[in-house]
Structure formats: C-alpha cells, structure tokens
Write a protein that binds this DNA or RNA. Structure first.
Length: 746
DNA sequence: AGCACGCCGACT
DNA sequence: GTCGGCGTGCTC
C-alpha cells in the first residue's frame, strides 16, 4: 500500500492555477484529506486557507518542490462534491481562477481560518416568543403604539416563536422587539437552531385557475428528472402561485427534499420570502449579500444539514450546499443582475440549470419577458415552454399609451396630460407610480451664461445634483463635490439644474399634491435596513399615494390599488449602440407597465417620449413582446450576434487610454497568431474599442470582442490561448479579464 | 492579490 | 549617506 500522495488545493488568489501540496506527515492516510475540506498551507512567505480539490498520485511539479500542508481545518468536507464540481465547471467555462470561484461558494466566515472552532455552537441565537401574559392578554393590540409593532406582535402570536435573525430579516428592528418586551408581551429565549419549536403557520393556498393548474401539471409531471421549463407568463398571471403550488406538491411527495428560488435582487426577496414563509413557515430562509456574516453562516449550515428546506436567494445562493434538491426556480430569468459583474463573471441562471442537472431535478425559469437566449433554447427544444396568457385575478392587461412630449412643458419631468391623469386617478382614490431612470434632483448642473457643465474629475461623466444632500455626486465613482454658489468658469450666478431625477419629481409632486403622500423609492431612500420594507407596507395599505422610483420598482412588486403608471422618459434605450438595447428596453418598460392594474382596478400606462412613432415603442404599446423578439432575433441572426453566436469580451483598463488600447492590440495579435495555426476555427476578433465610458475613476477602459459559432469552440480556444498568454508584453498598469457571455458589451 | 527584491530622488 | 517610491516577478 503506497502512502505517498499529493493534495491539490484551491487558494484565494487570482491565478488560473491549482497548487499541489504533500500531506503533513508521510504516514498520513488519504482519508484524512477529503476533497471539499479546508486546509491551512504555506504559500510564498505567508500562510493561506485553501480548499482541497482532489487527491492524486503525482504532481506536475517534482515532489521536491512541494511543501507539506500545515493543517487540515475541517474533519468532514465542508463543500459537497456537487458544489466542487460546479466550481470546477465555472472556472473552466468562465476562465476564472478556481480559488476565486471556490471561495465565492463559501460564506465569508469560512473563507478565513478561524481554525477548527465549533461553528455550530457559535450559531446559537436568540428566539422571541409571546409570554404567557402576552398570550392571556387577549387583544393586547391597544397596548401597542406603532403600526409596525402591532404587526410584529401579530406575527409573533401566530408563530409561537421566531429566530431573531428571521424577525430582523423581515424588516423589524431590535428596538421594536425591545419595546414589546418592555411591555411584558414577549420574551427572548434561546435554543439551538433546528431543535424544533417554531410551528409554521400555513395559510390556505388559493385556488389555481385553469392555466395555472395546467402549468403546475406540466412542471410536476416528472419530479425526478432534469428538465428546464420556461414559464412564460404575462405580468400578474400568478407565476408565484404556481411556484408555491409546485413546492407544496413536491413536499407532500418527498417531505425532506429541498428547493431553491433565485430572485434577481435583494429588493425583491423580502416580499417573495414573505409569500413563501406564509405557506411553508420556517422551512424557508433568505440568502443574499445584505445578510450579516452570522446570518449567512446560519443559513448555510442549516442547508448543509438539511434543516432549511427552501431558500429564496440572489445569485450567490446558487452555490449553497443542498444535498437533496428537488427543484429550482429562477424568477425573472431575463434579469441581467443574475450575471456577476466582478470577480468570477458567472450567470447564476445558467449555473442553476447546471445544478438542476447535477441533482437530476426540474428547473423553472419564470418571466413575463423571457430573454432571447431562453426563447431560442425553448424553440430548439432544449427547454419546455409553458405559457400563462391571462392575468390571474380577473384583471385585464393594462392599456399603454404613448404620449408625445415634444413642445410640451415639463414640470419635474411631468407633462400636463400626464399630470391630469395623475389628478384624475388620485381623486378616484387610486395609487399612481412614476418611473424615472435617474436618482438625484437633476442629472446635469449647467451654467446658462457660458455653457459650463458640472463634470466628474475622475470619470467621463456629468455630476448629478442632489438637492437634499446639497452636493454633486458622480454616479460612476461615487465621489462627491460641494455645490458651487456661482459658475466656476464665468463667476455669474447662473447655474441651472437641467433635467429631472427622482428627487425633483418627488419635490414637484409634493408641492402639487400637498395632501397626498409621495413615496420615493431609489437607492438613496432605501439605504437603511427596513426602510424599503416600510415603504412597501405603506403602499400595500392601498391608500391613495404617488410612488416615484427607479428600476427598483420594476421588479415583481404587487400593488393591488395601483392604477396608473407613468414612465417619465422612455427614450434613453432607443438609440443606444448596445445590440441588446431593444431587448432590455422592451423588458424594462413592459415590466414597469405590468405593475399597473393587477387586481380589479383597471390599469393604465402612459409612456412619455419624443419619438412616439418609433417602431419599438409602437410594439411595446401594443404589448406584443413576441413580435419584438421575432424582429430582434432576425436582426441578431443577420448580424451574427448572440444568441446565434457565442460571445466573449476581453475587458482591459490602464492609467492611459493608449495603454489600454495598446495592451489589447498585443493580446489581439497573439490571439490572431494562435488562430493562424487553427485554420478550422471560425473565431472573429473585433476591436480594440474604447469603452463608452472611457475614463472611470481615472482609469481608461477598452474592450475586445470575440465571436464564435459555438460556445465550446470559443471556450476551448480561449483555454488554449490562456496557457501561453502569460508571456505577452503589455504596458505598465495594464489589467485585463475575460467576460464570457457578456450582457454588458460596451 | 500579497509580498518580496530592486534600482533612483529628498531628508534626518 | 539612508528611507522609500512603485516596477516586475513569484507563489505548489
């Protein structure tokens, strides 16, 4: 029996390489080095935490150059082998350093070596439940002041006990808990997570309509086989109810199985989570980057040990260590935030499909406006297609009207006809939502005398004027500038805020409708934890109000009394050089429009534009997403663009534009060189081009476009090329990376 | 990414 | 005379 073996380790360094080590002692057994366990190893002159990828008989390097592992940190593998496989695949497909990928799959506390301390014991947390006094007080509501506290009390009455992390996760504060505790209504107690206790409160599921029932039948027809189902349902068609019914059905057949639901952004998860929690109680947990390390850690461990069965998460949740996954849902599958934009640039939607395959379970991709990629896959028979054509709650699809704002005066971005409509709907006790793609007061500050514009010193961008904060801010590098009192160039008192952002529209509406609440929802007003939740609760009270907000509003929210949606300006996406602009614009506008008239209320959408005859807007007004896709697919096919070809980018940056472009020229030269030896390959290299936003934080950005007929061809070629790209001389300060299947191509 | 080694400017 | 700038090279 040979005892000599080599341990291959992934380390958190940006190198496309694995590192081999020897066991700590020559007599060590292979069983003590299971793949997926963390190790402490010497690396250069520092010591790093790594993850064992594999054990093998020999190394590419001579044994004499290998160092021994310092310590094995985990007794059992922390990362299941399916996740390790997924990481390997991501590293290979996206040409990402394996270490970066593996460490992205671990919750932050496990990335560093807090040695072998017992993780579970550190997870004991506080639970809150009603006291006997609270329970016997009957209607204790009159004792409680705040609406939020009343709600919290109601929640704690229904659920016998709740983990503090879950309570705060739903947007309640510790202050609110303490206030109830001070009244003697509730008390904290501790017990170990998963030790039973909290009884899930199950609400009676609503009756599915016939379409939903048919969709459910299709999805659940073969529970134990891998299938990708594209659930294409108009906004308001009740996709979420189908998901819930599917999970309920699957759990009745296999009670211990697990489910993963991915949602594009955190802003969406609380609501989705609540709907899941109402149905499945504390089987449900949320997982996203806004959680504290401890919260993430707890969810991670609970999934690993099978205590948490259903997770609502954002893209990083695709790496969670489920071991008995029975189904995956990707909600709003077209959304570009599933694509990671830094580090390992993976698309969580595509990884989710891979996971479903690994676990041999169905995956449902849901959207009212599916991506062209998914539509193509459905056509090619790789995905099954399920349609929901009607809105669920006897509501019609809203009407969309294009409003020409040429030569119409705008106040706070709003034209007189739109203002009339707002008035009208408010008198009818309805809610109104205005969508503006810009936060801040105005996107430009200019001098009307000499034409001076407030610009960022570090970026090629105008500064946004924030009135309440009384400053200028760059939305690209986040630097701030104090507000000039007069024009810095001509010294006259002639500065003017040009254009409208959410803040200006909010201000205008507040003065125009002093008796109506104006609720602004953008990154600036939802910074503090729970503030978005508060605003959403206020809207869901169904009192008349005006909601002003950015993209955040477009996704998934369900506001029953919302009747009118105004889109302040639809024109930014009409003349972009991004080949995905039409697809993105159609998706965004139709999603926003879909917020209107979701229950019995009749919905109306008004899109302000300078180009009402633009074909894309015409098609959007006709709500013919199919026609838009049809047209787009023709254009993409003719232009040999994705999804008809495979695409990758090389993105570069350097302190000078010349260096960024020059470095890319060197890379391109070497790519072409390698292509010469591979005659059969139909790979095209275009560029280099300066990025649309050339200068960002005083660094210059440029890109190279690569196209190939097949994904595998491009992947193989790049893999091959990377093996000897290290010798290429590039200018100093030149950094570059590969972006496979980019969604952002400028 | 770190963290070294390595050659050229203003300071006790 | 040294302290220190960041250029480039390596890490199993």
């Amino acid at each position: 029996m040979s005892t000599s073996f080599v341990v291959t380790v992934a380390l958190p360094v940006p190198l496309r390489r694995q590192f081999d080590y020897l066991p700590s002692h020559p007599t060590d057994l292979r069983e003590n080095y299971p793949p997926g366990s963390r190790v402490q190893v010497p690396f250069g002159r520092r010591s790093l935490t790594g993850v064992i990828l594999a054990i093998s008989d020999e190394s590419e390097l001579p044994i004499s150059r290998l160092k021994p592992v310092a310590k094995v940190l985990d007794r059992a593998p922390l990362i299941p082998s399916v996740i390790l496989q997924l990481c390997q695949w991501v590293a290979d497909y996206y040409h990402a350093p394996i270490g970066e990928v593996v460490f992205a799959a671990l919750p932050p506390p496990l990335r560093t070596a807090n040695a072998d301390t017992d993780i579970i014991s550190s997870l004991q947390e506080t639970y809150w439940g009603a006291t006997s006094l609270g329970l016997s007080a009957g209607n204790a509501e009159h004792l409680i002041k705040g609406a939020k506290q009343k709600q919290l009390w109601g929640l704690l009455l229904k659920r016998k006990s709740m983990l503090q992390g879950d309570i705060t996760g739903l947007g309640y504060s510790l202050t609110q808990l303490r206030a109830l505790s001070a009244k003697g209504l509730i008390q904290p107690h501790s017990h170990i997570p998963g030790g039973g206790g909290a009884a899930p409160q199950i609400i009676e599921p609503p009756q599915l309509n016939q379409e939903q029932q048919e969709a459910l039948n299709r999805i659940s027809s073969e529970p134990d086989s891998f299938r990708t189902i594209l659930l294409n349902g108009v906004t308001g068609s009740g996709k979420t109810e189908v998901y819930l019914a599917w999970i309920a059905l699957a759990l009745s057949q296999r009670p211990d199985s697990q489910f993963l639901a991915l949602a594009p952004e955190i802003s969406l998860t609380p609501q989705l989570r609540q709907r899941f929690a109402l149905r499945f109680g504390d089987k449900v947990a949320a997982y996203h980057s806004a959680l504290t390390d401890k919260e993430r850690m707890r969810v991670w461990i609970n999934i690993l040990e099978g205590r948490t069965q259903i997770v609502i998460g954002t893209r990083s949740a695709v790496f969670l260590p489920f071991n008995d996954l029975a189904g995956i849902i990707v909600d709003e599958e077209h959304d570009s935030s599933f694509k990671q934009q830094d580090g390992a640039r993976y698309n969580a939607r595509d990884l989710a499909i891979l996971r479903a395959k690994e676990h041999s379970c169905p995956i449902v991709l849901g959207s009212a406006t599916p991506s062209l990629e998914s539509l193509m896959n459905a056509r090619g028979g790789r995905y099954e297609s399920v349609l929901l054509r009607q809105r669920a709650v006897n509501a019609d699809t809203p009407s969309i009207r294009l409003l020409d704002i040429k030569s119409r005066p705008l106040h706070g971005g709003i034209s007189p006809p739109l203002l009339e409509e707002i008035k009208q709907h408010l008198t009818e006790q309805r809610q109104v939502m205005l969508f503006i793609n810009r936060r801040g007061f105005s996107p430009t500050l200019m001098c009307v005398e000499c034409g001076w514009l407030a610009e960022c010193q570090h970026c090629d961008a105008r500064l946004t004027y924030h009135m309440k904060a009384a400053l200028l801010r760059c939305h690209h590098c986040d630097s701030t500038y104090s507000l000039p009192t007069c024009c810095p160039k001509c010294k006259q008192d002639s500065l003017k805020a040009v254009g409208a952002g959410t803040e200006r529209t909010e201000e205008f509406l507040e003065t125009t409708f002093p008796d109506t609440p104006v609720i602004r929802i953008d990154r600036d007003t939802t910074q503090t934890k729970g503030s978005l939740q508060d605003k959403l609760l206020q809207i869901r009270s169904n009192e008349p109000c005006i909601i002003v907000g950015t993209q955040m509003l477009a996704k998934g929210h369900d506001f029953p009394n919302l009747a009118l949606v105004g889109i302040i300006n639809a024109d930014s996406g009409l003349f972009s050089s991004d080949f995905r602009a039409a697809e993105k614009t159609a998706q965004l506008l139709l999603q926003v429009a879909g917020r209107a008239g979701r229950s019995a209320v009749e919905g109306k959408v008004i899109i302000q534009t300078l180009f009402p005859s633009h074909p894309l807007l015409q098609a959007i007004a006709a709500q013919d997403y199919n026609a838009i896709c049809e047209e787009e697919l023709h254009i993409r096919e003719a232009g040999r663009l994705p999804p008809f070809t495979s695409m990758a980018l090389i993105r570069a940056e350097a302190p000078l534009l010349e260096a960024a472009l020059g470095g890319l020229w060197s890379l391109k030269e070497s790519l072409l060189e390698l292509l010469k030896f591979n005659d059969g390959l139909q790979i095209e290299v275009h560029g280099p081009f300066p990025s649309v936003m050339q200068r960002k934080q005083n660094r210059f950005h440029a890109i190279l476009w690569l196209f190939a007929p097949q994904k595998a061809e491009l992947r193989q070629f790049l893999k091959h090329w990377l093996r000897y790209s290290e010798g290429i001389a590039t200018p100093s300060g030149f950094r570059w990376l590969i972006d496979v299947d980019p969604l952002e191509t400028l």
